[in-house]
Structure formats: structure tokens, C-alpha cells
Simulated scan of single mutants.
Amino acid sequence: MAKILNVTNLEKSYSSGSKKLKVLQDINFNVEEGKTFAIVGPSGSGKTTLLGLCAGLDRPDTGSINLCGSELSNLSEDERALLRNKHIGFVFQDFQLLPTLTALENVAVPLELQGNKDASKIGKELLEKVGLGDRIHHYPSQLSGGEQQRVALARAFSTRPSILFADEPTGNLDAETGEKVEALLFDLNKEAGTTLIIVTHDIELAEKTQHILRLKGGRIVENQQKHV
């Protein structure tokens, strides 16, 4: 099975006053194409920092990240943005919908940026798939948290990304709504054949994936591949 993400000897520090705070060290793992993968660990263990590095949103101090066949350290800022636009989808804990756009417009934006003439049609189909066919003209402020996250899921899958990064996708939702969003996430992912990487502190959610990477204090303490 081809590797869609390969992380080697990754280290990352941040300056805190005069001190240097090491957030990640000696990180090595890879993710196979089409698999579901969870990164878990307590708050402050480096999960979100690792996700940002893997998605090319930030640069490591040392080490290499190969994503979708490209070595990220060799790419300029613009080239990395292009790679993200072409291959990557994102789902965030706080939804990150554009408040001045309707549900349909939010889903259509990434497609329009790619010059897709069917952006509106695809957007409608996806919103119907996530159960929001009757809410396409509503603005984020008119939607519940669960509905907003479903719009965010539709947007993330709209460009049929090769890999989807989900950062605490159910973190702002109650248990029942969270379960519905989780089910949708896995269903859409299976249908699209996308590689899914979820950062979460929710062990139950992590257990639904095929591979769990556990961080503690910026280091990998467990790298468990499951036969799901």
C-alpha cells in the first residue's frame, strides 16, 4: 500500500520568553493511502502542532515530511498552498465557516477556487447527503453547532481531497450530535476513499480508526496499527 504521508525525525520548538519550549521530538510514522488514522494524547502533548506540520501550515525545526509525493521542506509558501488546495481537506473544532456566506456558498467556495463550473450543483448534492438539503440558503448563525459541522464536512469533501485532516471534529458538540457527525465523517470518507487523519482526545472516536498514534509530552508513546 502506498504511503500518502511519511514523517521522519520531526522536531519542533517554540520560543517562550528567553526559553525554548520543545513541543515535538523524534517523531517518526507513516500513513497508508485510504486509511483512517488517529493522533491522540492529552492537552499540550503536541497533537495540533503535529497536524499543522503534516498539512504544511507550519515548518518543523528539523526532520522531513513527505505529503502526497512532495517533500514539504522543498516547497515555497505558494507551492504548499497549491498542494493544500489540490489535495487536502480540513475540518476544525470551531467549524470555520464564513459567516457572510450561506451553507451552499460555504461548500462551493473551494470548488470555485479550483475553477469548477459545477460548484453549486456539487454543493447541493453534498448538503443533501449530510441531511441539510432544506438548509442550503441558511447562514451559519441560523444553524446549530451540529449543522454547522455538517456544512464543514460537506465543504471538506467537496474537492474530493486525497487526505483529510480533522482537528477535534466533535470537540464543540454534545455527545449525541458528535456521534452523528462522526458517523457522517466515516461514511463520506469511505465513499470518497479519502485518507483520514483525526486529532482527538476522544479515545472512543480514535478506536474507530485503523491506526492510533499516541503522543505524550511531544513524543510518540504508542504507534498501534489495528486490523479493522
Rank of each mutant, 00 (worst) to 15 (best):
T36K: 06
F37N: 12
A38M: 05
I39E: 06
I39P: 06
G41E: 02
S43H: 03
T49A: 10
T49S: 12
G52R: 13
L53S: 03
A55W: 11
L57E: 05
L57Q: 09
L57R: 05
L57T: 07
S64C: 00
N66M: 07
C68Y: 09
G69H: 11
E71K: 15
S73N: 15
N74C: 10
L75M: 14
R80Y: 06
A81P: 11
N85M: 11
N85I: 08
K86N: 14
H87Y: 15
I88T: 12
I88M: 15
I88C: 15
G89T: 14
G89A: 14
V91D: 13
F92K: 10
Q93V: 05
Q93C: 08
F95V: 02
Q96Y: 14
P99I: 13
P99N: 14
L101D: 04
N106A: 05
V107R: 14
A108Y: 10
A108M: 08
V109H: 03
L111G: 09
G115I: 00
G115M: 02
G115R: 01
K121G: 00
G123I: 04
K124Y: 09
L127C: 05
E128K: 14
G131E: 08
D134G: 00
R135H: 13
I136G: 02
H138D: 09
H138E: 07
Y139R: 11
Q142V: 11
Q149G: 07
A152R: 00
A152I: 00
A154Y: 06
R155E: 01
R155P: 03
R155D: 02
A156V: 13
F157M: 08
F157W: 01
T159Y: 00
I163Q: 09
A166C: 11
N172S: 12
N172Y: 06
L173K: 05
D174W: 13
A175D: 13
A175S: 15
T177G: 00
G178V: 05
E179S: 09
E179P: 01
V181M: 03
